[in-house]
Each structure stands twice: as structure tokens, then as C-alpha cells.
Design a protein around this nucleic acid. Structure first.
Length: 558
DNA sequence: CTGGGGACGGGGCCC
DNA sequence: CGGGCCCCGTCCCCA
């Protein structure tokens, strides 16, 4: 991030966007205010121009062109999109209205193709990521891009020529010039002009799925960009016939394009195999992934079984093989596991199994000290703490002890002990110590410890706001995915927003790996490098209150 | 406000 | 490699 951008921050309004989309989706489903019908191979989908223009570069430019000289944005229109599989189109529409892509993995390639053609870059990227494909290798030198632009111009001027043969010839020609391994090397070579930038064979050959030539309107669609005719240099480029979307996303981490499915049968020269290979490469945003890919660069794909995968919706990194689909259901709201007894639905099978214990009466976790039995192991754990009387979670302010972590957290979040703080004796590091020892050294517990201590230690420093792990949803990872410097800059800007603006964002108060360091830094330099104004202005009211007190305390100590 | 139960989502391990 | 199972932390709700 350049210094000039330090005022640019992203403050999510997750509820608003969800509600807005939800209303729009309801309208779509009810056919209300729909001014656009998309068809695909006999299926019809009502939708809204504005939404499609917002989500799709293709429609944005198509409608933009109409506004400029055509039939404008007004009338009801029917657009055949037979080049997008009906299921894929349905999924893309669903995505447009829900910000969630729900598709079977088997349909991923169709969706990828549709997203590419329609210029829905984030979906295309997500599909590629999930498919483990990367377009890195397909990045091209500027010169090559210009060539493609020129080619594009020619092609769109002669749409009939690009429909099939010529492009495929080009593709195969390129294909033959390509080495057999495109994915791995592409991952390893983030450089946009890596040697792999001789365009990817797979992308060239696989992704060239042209719009159906029968579709009369598809003179635009040939390259996915209806305005290519006028603005060939803008937005998209043909890569051997494959569309590259080069709009806003072009500079982002995931460069464009790739293979599409329908050309599998054409995947002579090994691209089909590659398609299989790259399937297993996960989102590949992690360093570990890149490392794994590196090892695969030579010949096969070799990849860690526990490779983290990034959620295409919330960008969260999901650890563990096979966990991404599970996580995705948290976005889709899909609850495929229904209790046969009461009908309650669950997102996960294991949760359903636990739920079923309520119906079967099974309580597999008996207390060894009494007759109590529990559905959950953690219930038993909590219960055992009652027997032992152990209350290992102590409030460092009022010294009230709790048997459960979450109860301490709840206690700390409230103000129940605030009034005691000014009266309590000055305390030193014992707070940290006694808690830390008791916690048994678990990392998460340490983080929690740090969290619970934060408000009392004049923390809530800007650099403690970020959490690399546990912030769910479209929270901070989305906002400040960058490094510490970026975070710092962004957080300074956040601080300047004032507490009111931030009051609705409890997710900004984070804990995480950096938090400990932040606290330590603060302890080393209380009130030093961190401007009081930054600390003071930045946070929600109730936290501000605590900060104020803590600052007073620290001044007192000094 | 606190204690307790339950639900939910993530990670680890194993098959 | 995907999925099942388990454990855990966290949140919400209720008494």
C-alpha cells in the first residue's frame, strides 16, 4: 500500500449487504421488478439489469453500451446465454444475489467458464482457486497482451471466424510450445512475466469454450466483453482465444484465466491430465501451498493433505482437508442434515449426530463423581470443574473467579467489575502470570488471556486489532489482508473515524497472534509510540471508557 | 449478574 | 484427499 492510500479503509457493513441482497433476491424469485431474462438452453432466469451489471463486467459493458446508444437501460430484455450451462448460470445468478456461490464440485468448471465469459472475476478466481488452478502462468507480458488486444479487435470484427477453428488452431499451436507443467510453476512464479507466461496450454485450449455460435447476439460474447468492439484494449484480452479479464482484478493476486471444462475432450497433449492434477491444488494462497506446489513443479502434483484453503467468500483460511465445503455451508446457510425425529436441520453431520442423542437419550459422558451424564464432552468438562471447585479463570480486576472461560469473557465484556478497578490495589504482572500458568499453555488460551487482559492493560492498540485466525466472516481479513504496515496505516485511519463510527464493529476488537506482541510492546512503551489520540479516538465507547481508565492507571503507575 | 445448557464453527486426527 | 469423528472455544439463551 502506498503512503497515499493510508486513508483508505474498508469498513464492512455485513448486515446491510446481506439484507440488501436478500431483498433483491426475494424480488428476483418473485419476479418483481425484473427487467432482464437470461436464458440458457431452454431455461429462463429472471433477474435485474442493475444487479447483473453490477456483478458482471459483461453485462456492465453490454448495458453501458446500450445506454450510450442502444435501447438504453429501460426495456425488458431477454438475453440468451446458451454458452453458459444452465446450472452454472443459475449458480452465478444465485451468487449475484447472495454473494455465495453454491455449486457442486462437479459443476465448478461450468461455473468457472460462465464466470469468465460473463466477467465475474471473483467467481472465476474462486473457482480456479478451488479447482486448484492458477492463472499465474497465463499472465502475459504487456507486449503479448497488446498483441492479443489487436487480435481481439480483429476477431470481434469477424466474429464468425473466431467461433471455432481458428482459435483452436492457435490454442493447439501454443499448446505444443508449452511444457507439460503449467500449474505448479505458475504458482511458484508469481512473477507476472515468468517464463511460464508463455501462455498456459491448458488455459488456451481448455478455456476457449466459445459462446454458442448459434446465438445471434453473441457477437459480443465471443470474447466475453460486449464492448470489446469499441474498446478492445479495455478489460479483456484474448489469450489464444481465451478471454482474460483484465479489469480491476488484474492487479490482484489471482491473475486470470484458465481452463474450462468443455474442452477437456480437446485436451490432447496432456492438458486433461493437468486439469486433473491441478484439481488438488487448493486455493494456494498460503505460503505452504506455494511450497507444496514448488515441490510439484517438476512432475507431478504433490501436495500436503492438510493444505489450508481459502474461503472464496470471506477469504478466511480454512485448515484441514475437506473442511472448506463444511465452512462454505456457513455462508450458504445450507443445512443438509436433518433430524428425522424433530426436523431440525444442521450444517454438519456430526452436529446432527450429537443432536440425535437428545432423542435417543444417549448421554455418553457420565460424570464419575455423580450421576450426571452429558451429551457433550465439553459439558462434562465444565461439570467436572464444578466438582473440583476449580475456578481457574480469574478476572484480573475484581479477582472474581469463574469455572468457565466464556463466563470470564462475558464478565469482562460487561462492566461489572469496572467500578472496582479504581479501588483495586495496583497490580503487577501477577495477573498475567497466574492466569498463564493455569491455562496449561494452550496457545488459544493464551490468546484468550491476552484478549481478556486487553481492556485492562490499556491495550486495544491499533496493531492488536488484527486477527489472523479467528475473525469470522467478512471482517478484518477482508479489510486489511496486508502486512503489519498496512494494518497500521489502515488502523490509524480507523482510529480517526472516532468511536461512534466504530461502535458497531466489535469484530474490530480482535485477538490473535499479534496481540501478545502488541501487548508486550505496549508494556515496554506504555503510551509511547502509540499516540493517545489514536488510542482514544479509535474505539467503541465502552472500550474507550476502559482505555481511559487504564491510561489513567498507567499514568498513575509512572 | 451468574451458572448452566446448548448450538455453532474451526482444527486435529484418523480412516 | 475427502469425510467422519472428536475436541475446543465462543456465543446465545434461560433460569
Amino acid at each position: 500500500m502506498s503512503p497515499g492510500e493510508d486513508g483508505l479503509i474498508g469498513i464492512p457493513f455485513p448486515d446491510y449487504s446481506n439484507e440488501l441482497l436478500s431483498h433483491l433476491n426475494n424480488q428476483r424469485r418473485a419476479g418483481l421488478l425484473c427487467d432482464l431474462t437470461l436464458t440458457s438452453r431452454g431455461s429462463h432466469y429472471q433477474t435485474h439489469r442493475s444487479v447483473m451489471a453490477a456483478v458482471s463486467l459483461y453485462f456492465r459493458r453490454l448495458f453501458g453500451a446500450e445506454e450510450g446508444g442502444g435501447d438504453g437501460g429501460g426495456g425488458f430484455s431477454v438475453y440468451p446465454l446458451d454458452f453458459v450451462a444452465p446450472d452454472a448460470l443459475d449458480a452465478l445468478l444465485e451468487f449475484a444475489y447472495t454473494a455465495t456461490l453454491t455449486i457442486p464440485s462437479s459443476g465448478m468448471r461450468d461455473v468457472l467458464q460462465g464466470a469468465q465469459v460473463l466477467g465475474i472475476q471473483c467467481v472465476a478466481d474462486a473457482c480456479r482457486d478451488i479447482l486448484g488452478e492458477t492463472a499465474e502462468a497465463e499472465r502475459e507480458p504487456a507486449e503479448e497482451l497488446r498483441d492479443h488486444h489487436i487480435a481481439t479487435e480483429r476477431m470481434v470484427q469477424e466474429p464468425s471466424r473466431i467461433a471455432k477453428g481458428s482459435r483452436r488452431k492457435t490454442d493447439r499451436k501454443k499448446l505444443k510450445n508449452m511444457g507439460p507443467h503449467r500449474i505448479s510453476s505458475s504458482i511458484l512464479n508469481p512473477s507476472p512475466i515468468s517464463p511460464g507466461s508463455h501462455s498456459s496450454p491448458a488455459s488456451d485450449s481448455q478455456s476457449t469454450q466459445p459462446p454458442s455460435p448459434e446465438q445471434g447476439e453473441h457477437k459480443f460474447v465471443q470474447n466475453g466483453d460486449p464492448r470489446m468492439i469499441r474498446e478492445p484494449g479495455r478489460g479483456a484480452a484474448l489469450n489464444g482465444g481465451h478471454l482474460h479479464w483484465l479489469h480491476e482484478r488484474a492487479l490482484l493476486a489471482h491473475p486470470p484465466p484458465v481452463p474450462t471444462p468443455d474442452d477437456k475432450e480437446e485436451d490432447i497433449e496432456g492438458c486433461g491430465d493437468d486439469a486433473m492434477l491441478i484439481r488438488t491444488t487448493s486455493i494456494s494462497t498460503s505460503v505452504a501451498d506455494r511450497g507444496a506446489a514448488a515441490s510439484a513443479a517438476g512432475g507431478g502434483r504433490k501436495r500436503k493433505s492438510q493444505t489450508p484453503q481459502q474461503c472464496p467468500v470471506c477469504q478466511k483460511i480454512i485448515h484441514g482437508a475437506g473442511k472448506l465445503p463444511r465452512h462454505m455451508r456457513t455462508h450458504t446457510g445450507e443445512k443438509p442434515f436433518q433430524c428425522s425425529a424433530c426436523g431440525v436441520r444442521f450444517t454438519r453431520n456430526d452436529k446432527l449426530k450429537i443432536h440425535m442423542r437428545k432423542h435417543t437419550g444417549e448421554r455418553p459422558y457420565p460424570c464419575p463423581h455423580c450421576s450426571a451424564r452429558f451429551l457433550h464432552s465439553y459439558d462434562l468438562k465444565n461439570h467436572l470443574s464444578l466438582h473440583s471447585g476449580a475456578r481457574p479463570f480469574e478476572c484480573p480486576l475484581c479477582h472474581k473467579a469463574f469455572a468457565r472461560e466464556d463466563h470470564l469473557q462475558r464478565h469482562r465484556k460487561g462492566h461489572s467489575c469496572l467500578e472496582l478497578r479504581t479501588r483495586r490495589p495496583r497490580h503487577g504482572p501477577e495477573l498475567v502470570e497466574d492466569r498463564g500458568v493455569e491455562r496449561g499453555g494452550r496457545e488459544q488460551s493464551n490468546q484468550l488471556e491476552a484478549l481478556s487482559l486487553q481492556p485492562h492493560s490499556s491495550a486495544f492498540l491499533p496493531h492488536t486489532l488484527m486477527d489472523g485466525r479467528s475473525v469470522s466472516g467478512a471482517g478484518s481479513p477482508f479489510m486489511f489482508p496486508g502486512d503489519v504496515e498496512r494494518r497500521s496505516l489502515a488502523l490509524q485511519a480507523l482510529a480517526q473515524l472516532g468511536p461512534r463510527r466504530l461502535a458497531g464493529y466489535p469484530q474490530l476488537f480482535l485477538r490473535g497472534p499479534e496481540l501478545r506482541g502488541g501487548r508486550e510492546a505496549e508494556e515496554e512503551d506504555p503510551g509511547g509510540t502509540h499516540s493517545p489520540s489514536v488510542q482514544h479516538d479509535g474505539w467503541a465507547d465502552e472500550v474507550e471508557e476502559e482505555i481511559g481508565e487504564d491510561e489513567a492507571e498507567e499514568e498513575e503507575e509512572e
